[in-house]
């Protein structure tokens, strides 16, 4: 899984640190472009003259400093990345819900690397390895084979289930990483892999958790379906949605709360698998005239 450096018999020459290379390469990349470079939802810019760097939300470019909360400790990035604008916990840092309203200035490339690793954990290292063609990819089946305990059941998720989980979990609307892994070596991922700078080399723990949920949906076997082909959990989700909408405001479950009906990724999965049952293709043809 990790980038390996060539074996060195005798071990005289110093070890190659791909992380140190990544830190330097990232700083160099940023230094080359005075107006700054986007990475995920932030823009990183070299500060003229002093070797420092500035980070801010991409939507806050051009906003006067006085209107932003200024930080200069690289570890402040952890607090910045912790909660959404609405105060929800962010278990997946590549989710497109980074809050705005801050600016972080750090003194050098080391501090930049620390800050980046709180905003996009291991993002710079993977960006660098990917650019060099050295990022090792772990496909879904290899990842699933490693799972144990309550996650062992994801090994039995069907290929179609993996594909739909990826569409529900990984596309740019919900995760800004570029999805590089496949179902297995012969089955490429069907989801839109995304345009982001940050590569995703392996299903993450949020994905595995949703995959487990989807596997439980798959297990609602034919016997459990009603006359029009709906499963118990599909009916539960529809009821929850109707009840919530009837109050005038739908309160969504937390980002990774996949056991709750009104979870965005769970709903994205339902859109792929339930909506076609409810609204067969012929009904959706655009009206003429």
């Amino acid at each position: 899984m990790r980038a390996t450096s060539p074996e060195r018999p005798g071990g005289e020459s110093p070890r190659r640190s791909t992380a140190a290379e990544a830190r330097a390469a990232f700083a160099h990349w940023v230094n080359e472009v005075p107006e700054g470079l986007p990475f995920g939802q932030i823009v990183v810019r070299a500060l003229p003259g002093n070797g420092g760097y500035e980070l801010r939300h991409v939507a806050d470019v051009g906003i006067p400093d006085g209107d932003l909360v200024a930080h200069n400790e690289p570890r402040a990035a952890r607090e910045i990345a912790k909660l959404t604008e609405e105060g929800e916990y962010r278990p997946l840092k590549s989710s497109p819900n980074l809050k705005r309203g801050w600016v972080l200035r750090v003194k050098d490339d080391r501090a930049l690397y620390v800050a980046m690793n709180y905003l996009y954990p291991s993002g710079v290292a993977h960006w660098h390895l990917y650019r060099n063609g050295e990022l090792e990819i772990t496909n879904y089946r290899e990842n699933a084979a490693r799972q144990s305990g309550i996650y062992k059941r994801v090994q039995r998720l069907s290929d179609e289930g993996v594909q739909n989980t990826a569409k529900a979990c990984c596309e740019d609307a919900v995760c800004l990483k570029k999805t590089l892994w496949d179902v297995d070596e012969n089955t490429p991922l069907a989801a839109d892999r995304g345009e982001g700078e940050i590569p995703c080399p392996e299903p993450c723990s949020i994905f595995v958790s949703l995959a487990r949920r989807v596997r439980l949906f798959e297990r609602e076997n034919k016997r459990d379906l009603d006359a029009i082909g709906l499963s118990p959990s599909e009916k539960e989700d529809l009821s929850a949605l109707v009840e919530a909408a009837a109050t005038g405001s739908v309160k969504f479950a937390r980002e990774a709360e996949f056991e709750e009906p009104l979870n965005e990724r769970r709903m994205r999965y339902r859109k792929l698998t339930l909506v076609p049952k409810l609204r067969p293709v012929e009904d959706t043809a655009p009206e003429e005239g």
């Binding site: 640190s17 830190r23 840092k93 291991s122 390895l129 723990s205």
Partner: peptide, 17 residues
């Protein structure tokens, strides 16, 4: 285990030998 950086990838971002 359940957050980032994952155990799986933490060694990628560490420089020390």
């Amino acid at each position: 285990w359940k957050e980032e950086p994952s155990m799986r990838h933490v060694l990628d971002m560490v420089e020390a030998e």
